[in-house]
Design a protein around this nucleic acid. Structure first.
Lengths: 211, 211, 211, 211
DNA sequence: TATGAATGAGGGTTCATTCAT
DNA sequence: TATGAATGAACCCTCATTCAT
């Protein structure tokens, strides 16, 4: 149950290797998030992971490959938006609350890894593409389908679906950025965000709207 | 750097200096946006600006100072949200259309400089703080005041004002990020975004709402 | 290494060990000849010999020791210039043909090992001395004795014996180098070389000479 | 007179640069000849040349490029076998004496550079090709023409011209190698070599030959 | 004894910064 | 003030060697 696809390590040696790789990746994420990819040195990471410099290269081809590894880990975490998929069933406003809740929770959880990767995403075309595909586009497609269906059912006002979806996603991405920037109200009010968001995008600010 | 107040250069020599400083800053922004701060070399910038390496150090203390200079330039562009201030008067939905329009235009215009600065903003606390203050917080304050007033006037549904404002700002920031990530629908539909946005946040998706 | 005298291995285990040592040495020679001593890695050699990296260190103290081992193998091949010794008896011109034939054949045979060792011979004083002793000087002595005797017998023109011998040896060494350099005429005409050489050094180019 | 093709440096700065490049190249040749290319460190060379490590990279792309630079310098020295060409006129035996004299002198002069380059020539295909072309093949062609003509004139015994030329060249190359190996008789008798060589290859060892 | 992962010293190279001209 | 060569600290990465299993 939950073992998913990869066969886990069986021998003691294999388990040790896997643990070590994880330790290295976590150390890398921590150091990158703290100092940035370029300021971080392999030695920093090695020390935090408590291995020798050279050991890192038994697991990763080069420094950049650590970044790619972190991206892959993020992708793994993203694998199952199970709750989100479930939420696709219910009431629309409810969906938004749940969806926002799920996403924001995920953001909170993986923030360090995201913070490690994000600056380089803006700089490296390969990373950018990968990030976009796995972090943005997959969700876009899902949301577009959902929203289109709801429009056709008359549960949602007729809107420009693709752009509206982008706006919704922008809120997620933007929130993450504002959090990283250290915005205080967002920090302290994080748990209220889903409700506020749902109100904003479902009910609208117009006081004449239903709600 | 920044030369403080508006007193323009008077002598020919001063004008030349200022022009050169601008050329360097523009070159820096272009190179940083293209390759990222750390991949960019002083030589790259010097070549694009058509000066010698050493000359740059007559205008800027060090490489990082170029980034600060670019930030300052962005701040200058941000100085006058004149149209936005004007829009503060009119009808609420109208305000959103105009506000979004103004911001998105600004984003479009200064995208290269933003792209030059943004990755390092995530990495450097000093830059982060400065960016947050001048790029986010000032607008937050303005919007909070506006929204609070509109709520009190009954023109806007009672909401959690600070968080709602953050969500609105998130949309701006997030849109910028999605653009940089190369999202196609956003790219090609950019001119429709203000209207879509206003619909989303003012009217809401709820089809029962007024609109 | 080298195992000193000729006592072959007796137990199965010993035979396996010896086979393995040979496999490693051959792999080393191949890799060194191909990539050069410094470009070659222990891993390269281990892979070619189909053993683990660490195993090599059960047979050789360090990387350089592999080179020494190869030198020793060359020395073994050089052990018996039997035919050459025999040739010392006969007619002088005949001797040269046979001697050249024997040497050139040997060169051809051990070229890979020579190519593995030669570059480092120029670089490492220890190797240089060993190579000189076993590969050059022993032959010098032999040839000097032979030539001196023949001069005294009047079978050879009175010449500066030591220098003449060096010139003759230079031809061997030089031919090897030209071969390694890939000289085409030498490559394709290799089997004619002994006769050509004998003509050159015995008969001379002077058409007035006997021959 | 003698300035050859390249316009020399004119400004003081240019002269200094050129001098520095030469100093670096000479230092590189000395260090490579002493320790071998791979044992030599950039720091070694920089120290001997009395420059900073980084300075070397203002003149040469990388460490290997220093080797190529040394090869080019050797080629320059090889540019004018003026005396040799002159010797092409006279008497055959005389030609050999002069030719050997000229070549051996050249070898003596450039021995350090040769010793720096030679080991890598055996290892690096690119270097090997270049070395062969400029150091061997050009001379081969010249000598083949000369020898062919002399054969046709009846001044030289009919021989396999290409192979005979290779043997003659082997003597040069081989002598160089033996010298590097530290052969004592060759070292101390170096000035007698041309005469000994001419005797060997022109008169032959056969005492019945003319001479 | 064989294995192969861990080690860490070492070195080539880059590039921000300096400074003599 | 502009120039651009010189500087040298810093860092990624390799790989011979070790050693626990």
């Amino acid at each position: 149950m939950g073992n998913g696809s990869q066969a886990g390590p069986v021998t003691r040696r294999e388990r040790l290797k896997q643990e070590r790789e994880e330790r290295i990746l976590e150390a890398a994420a921590a150091v990158f998030a703290d100092k940035g990819f370029h300021q971080a040195t392999i030695r920093d990471i090695a020390e935090l992971a408590d291995v020798a410099d050279g050991t890192i290269y038994n697991y990763f081809d080069n420094k950049f490959d650590l970044l790619v590894g972190i991206m892959a880990r993020i992708a793994e975490l993203e694998r199952l938006p199970a709750e989100l998929v479930q939420a696709l069933q219910g009431d629309v406003r409810d969906f938004f609350v749940k969806a926002f809740d799920e996403r924001l929770g995920r953001i909170e959880q993986g923030q360090e890894m995201l913070q490690a990767v994000l600056p380089e995403v803006f700089v490296n075309p390969h990373l950018r593409e990968q990030f976009y595909q796995q972090y943005v586009l997959r969700i876009s497609t899902l949301l577009e389908q959902y929203l289109q269906a709801q429009v056709e059912l008359g549960h949602v006002r007729p809107v420009n679906v693709p752009l509206t979806v982008r706006m919704v996603q922008s809120i997620f991405v933007g929130s993450l950025v504002l959090r990283i920037l250290g915005d205080e109200p967002l920090q302290s009010g994080w748990q209220d965000v889903p409700e506020v968001l749902a109100t904003l995008v479902y009910d609208g600010l117009n006081p004449g709207g239903g709600g």
